[in-house]
Amino acid sequence: MRSILTVYRKELTDYFSSKKFIILLGLVYVAGLSSVYVSLQNIRDATSGLDGFIFLKLFTISGDILPSFITFISLFIPIIGIIFGFDAINSERRSGNLSRVMSQPIFRDSIINGKFLAGITTLSIIIASIVFLISGIGLRSIGVPPSAEEILRIFFFIFICIFYGTFWMSLSMLFSIIMEKTATSILTSIAIWLFLVIFLPIIANAIANTVVPLENASAADQVKNYVIEHNILRSSPSTLFSESITTLLVPAGGHFLINPQSFASADLSKMLLSPLSLGQSLIQVWPQIIVIIALAIICFAVSYVIFMRQEIRAT
């Protein structure tokens, strides 16, 4: 057990001494603080007063130029995760540290466990600190304390962010185990990320338009088209992530994003755009959250198994 802690502490120290971490932290802070600045500019126009979740709006309101905090964070989390994981094992192997460390009286998994835990911890520190920083600034500026439910929602939000980041970190860590060169492992991870974030939407759109052409389409066909596109996008963890955080942080109406069918079929004139309770919000996105957590665990488990079976040869 102590060996995991030792590796963990050493890895944490590495993070907090490395330039890449400080640059990432700075980036996240700059993005977060500029987004809260923008949301504070617009929060009063967006506050209807009735809906009540004013505090959450700090995170969800975007300005004319700058996007909202949740948009920023959905962009940054995969980058942070990839950067934290891509060289976890192969750089140690190449530098010759791995075999030296492995010859110490520790279990082999201490290394990967310690690294993994240190990554999660650092990720959590980044995400939690910026969220709390925004909360503090918000509290100071708008003077509205969050309700207990809002606090819970924010904690769930942080929790999901951490798991989402863990998924990306485990994925890039997996590549760092499989691939010998750090350049290959980071490029592979980034390629996957770009595919999911940029190309998948294009592909989904193209497929949907082929199956149900939008030209002269009836309303029902338009809905069908959207549903097809949406279901393809669901294969991407980034879609699952944005669905779950939007539903959590936009209690009134956020869940329409994930149920386009119901949105289209419901008689909107009779529908009130009232906020869902926390339990209802969670139930809406429970599958998404579970899939994100499962993906993170699967990626880590695969990394773990491959690492444990791998030869330690120095060359």
Partner: peptide
């Protein structure tokens, strides 16, 4: 591994750590 020390062919240390820090890490392990 507690009684046997191993010096791999391509021995590597954490380059950004001092000699002392590298040895301290080994000691803790």
């Amino acid at each position: 591994k507690r009684i046997a020390g191993y010096l791999p062919e391509k021995i590597g240390f954490y380059e950004d750590m001092t000699a002392e820090q590298n040895l301290a890490y080994t000691a803790e392990l």
